[in-house]
Amino acid sequence: MIGLSHYLFVAAALFCIGVYGVLTKKNAIAVVMGIEFMLNAVNINLIAFNHFMAPNHVIGQLFAIFIIGVAAAEVSLGLAIILSLYRQRHLVAIDEMDILKW
């Protein structure tokens, strides 16, 4: 029988893969991908909790929808910034984006 813990393990693994992507990727788009994985892991958690802890409600799904909406906004803005940087300074590597440093 598959229980809540199984889903949580999967979500934790996905979250940590996202963390690894965020920390170790040079390319800004890859970093955004890592962030998407982390958000998806959270969504899986929310829906699993909803399903196993409160099957009479949809509150977890509502949270997930909000997160998806915010993620969509984040990606569009993030990509716009990356494009703009690429166009003006020819940068995609995130460790070269240090113009705001002191």
Partner: peptide, 17 residues
């Protein structure tokens, strides 16, 4: 103290995690 502020986002994220 300024040296802690490297401006590298991933370093910040590392510290965060």
């Amino acid at each position: 103290l300024r040296l802690f502020q490297t401006g590298r986002l991933q370093q910040y994220a590392l510290v965060l995690f």
